[in-house]
């Protein structure tokens, strides 16, 4: 087994644990590279089936190519897709002009909470990785959220020997993170090996590409000439610029991302 085989096996183990131990689970699909890889792993884990709903929280500010990709792939892969949005906030005109953290909280966090509550999900699978950001580095694979979907990062349950927290009080729910141990480079090497389809925005055009995808107003592209998966891998092997450097909401204050996550952001 090489390192990608080991990561793949571990992620499949986690997905199967979540499916077996929790009553109502769903997988978050942000259309980004990580959640595309996660979907691929689910199809491997369950032999071609995705036996739970795939959720997309639409902020209506996403880059249009992302929504096109979502609808095409959902059809091709026959995914049980559920799209949700915070209708109220959108009607009230919520946008980054109200403050980036406020906008993320309303459209993503609150949108997601409403979607989870309306379907009664007790577990939601998310494609976050430890190497993305300092806060995510502290996450557990099975990470409990209280009734308000808040994350108590100061008192997390012990997690060892692949024995995950699968018992939890009514009203609380779990976030499950099958990609926690993957690095950005691992993700791209796996995309190359498995030939997993990706949104074109990741590939450089006119000297710029997106390294991380989010909403149009808050996601910037980076200077790059990497126009193929192989070139992206080559680029990542040498870069020292952080992955979320194009994500404006992280930089509102020094602990902006931490506050977002403690409040229930992915």
């Amino acid at each position: 087994m090489n390192d990608l085989d080991a990561l793949e096996s571990q992620s499949i183990y986690i997905l199967r644990e979540a499916f077996n131990r929790l009553d109502k689970i769903a997988m978050l699909w942000s259309i980004g590279k990580d959640s595309n890889v996660m979907l691929w792993l689910a199809r491997k884990a369950f032999f071609g089936h995705v036996p739970f709903p795939v959720l997309h929280v639409d902020t209506k500010h996403k880059i249009p190519e992302m929504i096109e990709f979502r609808d095409r792939v959902a059809k091709e892969w026959n995914l049980p897709l559920i799209v949700g949005e915070n209708t109220e906030a959108l009607a009230a005109g919520m946008g980054p002009h109200n403050g980036r953290v406020e906008c993320c909280t309303a459209l993503k966090t609150e949108g997601l909470k409403a979607l989870l509550a309306s379907h009664g999900f007790t577990g939601v699978i998310a494609g976050i990785r430890r190497d993305e950001e300092g806060t995510r580095a502290k996450e557990r694979v099975f990470s409990p959220r209280n009734q308000s979907a808040e994350w108590d990062f100061k008192d997390q349950p012990p997690e060892f020997w692949d024995q995950f927290k699968t018992d939890f009080a009514p009203g609380t729910h779990l976030r499950i993170h099958p990609l926690l141990a993957w690095s950005e480079l691992d993700v791209w090497r796996y995309i190359e090996r498995e030939n997993i389809p990706m949104v074109d925005l990741y590939f450089a055009k006119n000297g710029r590409r997106y390294r991380s995808l989010g909403c149009a107003p808050c996601t910037g592209s980076v200077a790059s000439t990497a126009s193929t998966v192989a070139e992206i891998i080559e680029e990542l092997e040498t870069t020292k610029i952080s992955e979320r450097s194009g994500r404006a909401q992280d930089k509102e204050s020094e602990d902006a991302f931490e506050r977002l996550r403690a409040g229930g952001y992915m």
């Binding site: 950001e133 300092g134 806060t135 502290k138 990062f153 100061k154 997390q156 020094e254 602990d255 931490e258």
Partner: peptide
């Protein structure tokens, strides 16, 4: 990286 840790000066997780 966490705010709480900087304030208390200890690693909590």
């Amino acid at each position: 990286a966490l705010q709480a840790e900087r304030d208390q000066g200890i690693t909590i997780d």
